[in-house]
């Protein structure tokens, strides 16, 4: 349980980061908090030739609001977002979800963007990004681009990040008046990976439900506006559409039942807190 050998660089600016990614391409990995990468190194599931430490880069350390979006830089730790004084007002869904991410001890180091880059199918931050229609800002030596969350997650720990690219920031749209947000999760113990996690966003005309922990990446669905049988039917269709499988933690059938019940609770809660 010790990491394999790797070079380690501490760039002083973005140019150096992107140059290293360009030169070493698939052999290079970005490290920030390391809370997903270091376990992978310890178990030797990852064997990068060089780690590029971005924690010292000032321009990646800020949370700021621009044109209706909260922009979270790649070196911002989860604990810093948790302590951000505007979190409850600007990103109420994240204010609810963030306590479910790992533990106090991992949030103190782990970054928001790192969790998005890791793309674990049951992780809370990718789910919130999908639910809120956020986006991911990618940079490489050649160009910059912004990828909507819906196009970013491709599968189990697989994303749209290309060779030589890194996440510079993720953006979440600021909460709107008249919209309700709710987050629910079931796991074996607090801080364990979610068996099923649900995030709902409801306004006067539409309801979205995003579900994590079931399919190989978080997915989003539109729901009918009624609270009765039509909602139950839609949730049942979603439960079957998610390719729920049996694993060590839960059966596929149990996951489908959680999608139906937890999904319903989450939707009703989001609808009840519209104001």
């Amino acid at each position: 349980m010790k990491p394999p050998a790797f070079d380690f660089v501490r760039p002083e600016g973005m140019e150096e980061v992107l140059e290293t990614l360009h030169l070493r391409s698939s052999d290079a990995r970005i490290i920030a908090g390391g809370q997903s990468l270091v376990p992978m190194l310890n178990m030797r599931l990852a064997r990068p030739g060089v780690l590029v430490d971005i924690t010292g880069l000032r321009n990646l350390q800020s949370i700021h609001e621009v044109r209706g979006e909260v922009v979270i830089g790649a070196a911002v730790r989860q604990a810093e977002l948790e302590a951000w004084p505007h979190l409850r007002r600007k990103l109420p869904l994240l204010a609810q979800a963030i306590r479910w991410i790992g533990h106090v001890q991992t949030r103190a180091r782990g970054t928001v963007c790192g969790s998005v880059a890791h793309a674990d199918p049951s992780a809370e931050l990718p789910l919130a990004l999908i639910a809120l229609n956020g986006s991911v800002r990618l940079a490489s030596q050649r160009s910059k681009r912004t990828v909507p969350a819906a196009d970013f997650f491709l599968g189990m720990m697989s994303t749209a990040i290309a060779e030589g690219e890194m996440i510079e920031a993720v953006t979440f749209p600021v909460a709107e008046n008249g919209t309700g947000y709710a987050f629910r999760e079931i796991g074996r113990r607090h801080g364990d990976f979610a068996i099923v996690a649900c995030a709902a966003v409801a306004d006067k005309t539409a309801t979205r439900l995003a579900i994590g922990g079931v399919d190989d990446h978080p997915r989003q669905f539109d729901l009918p506006q009624e609270n009765g049988d039509e909602l139950d039917d839609a949730l049942n269709d979603i439960a079957w559409a998610l390719n729920a499988r049996d694993d060590l933690h839960a059966s596929g059938r149990y996951r489908r039942e959680l999608v139906r019940r937890l999904g319903r609770e989450t939707v009703l809660e989001a609808r009840s807190c519209r104001n």
Binding site: N42, Q105, A108
Partner: peptide, 19 residues
Amino acid sequence: CTVQVDGAPVRACLILAAQ
């Protein structure tokens, strides 16, 4: 392996010496 780094409790097994 929890220790405190800059006042916060963290997992020492998930932190590289270089960091």
